[in-house]
């Protein structure tokens, strides 16, 4: 059994975008704040901090989850992908490029989380219908775009994947899906 006292700071080690990083966290520190303030992963956006807006979504062990609804101490040992992990070197990956092409963002605040959700979503469901894409996007709030460009961008990636006859997910670095 593990017990951490209320103000005790413990070292939490995670793999972020393929790099082993660690920092200190007391139990109440949210994973979103840990990623930003301890590990300097500023691509993680903080919005509502109660799981509604989706801005802070990252991949934890391959699954898109709210980093504001998880404590850093819970994530010890986890493999995490943030939006910084999507680009292939200096080049946008296909999903990011499609978002750019289809004007799927304006201010960009919600975009990081949406890219992470979509990455996991397309890996699970490489040929979604428009309705399924919209259902997935219902877990995010965007106040600029009206979502239309995002739907177009995601369907563009799906069509492109189908043309290439492969079901390779639209993402940069693959990471293992564990439970």
């Amino acid at each position: 059994m593990k017990r951490i006292k209320p103000h005790e700071r413990q070292r939490v080690a995670v793999t972020v975008n393929g790099r082993r990083l660690s920092g200190l966290a007391e139990p109440r520190l949210l994973l979103s704040d840990f990623l930003r303030h301890e590990l300097m992963q500023f691509g993680v956006r903080v919005g509502c901090e109660h799981g509604v807006c989706g801005a802070c979504t990252v991949l934890v062990n391959g699954r898109a989850v709210r980093s504001c609804l998880q404590f850093a101490v819970e994530a010890d040992g986890a493999v995490i992908t943030t939006v910084e992990g999507l680009a292939e070197g200096d080049a946008l990956n296909r999903l990011q490029a499609a978002f750019r092409q289809h004007h799927a963002l304006q201010c960009g605040y919600c975009t990081a989380g949406i890219l992470m959700s979509t990455t996991h979503f397309l890996r699970e469901n490489p040929r979604p219908t428009e309705a399924e894409v919209r259902e997935m996007l219902s877990g995010h709030i965007c106040r600029c775009t009206g979502y239309h460009g995002m739907v177009q961008a995601i369907l563009h990636v799906v069509a492109e994947t189908e043309e290439q006859g492969s079901v390779e997910p639209a993402e940069g670095r693959p990471d293992p899906v564990t439970t």
Partner: peptide
């Protein structure tokens, strides 16, 4: 929007929980 301080416990068995 940050939780108040709490002790974090991670039991290994139902009996411990």
């Amino acid at each position: 929007m940050k939780p108040a301080a709490f002790e974090y416990c991670r039991p290994d068995t139902v009996a411990e929980a």
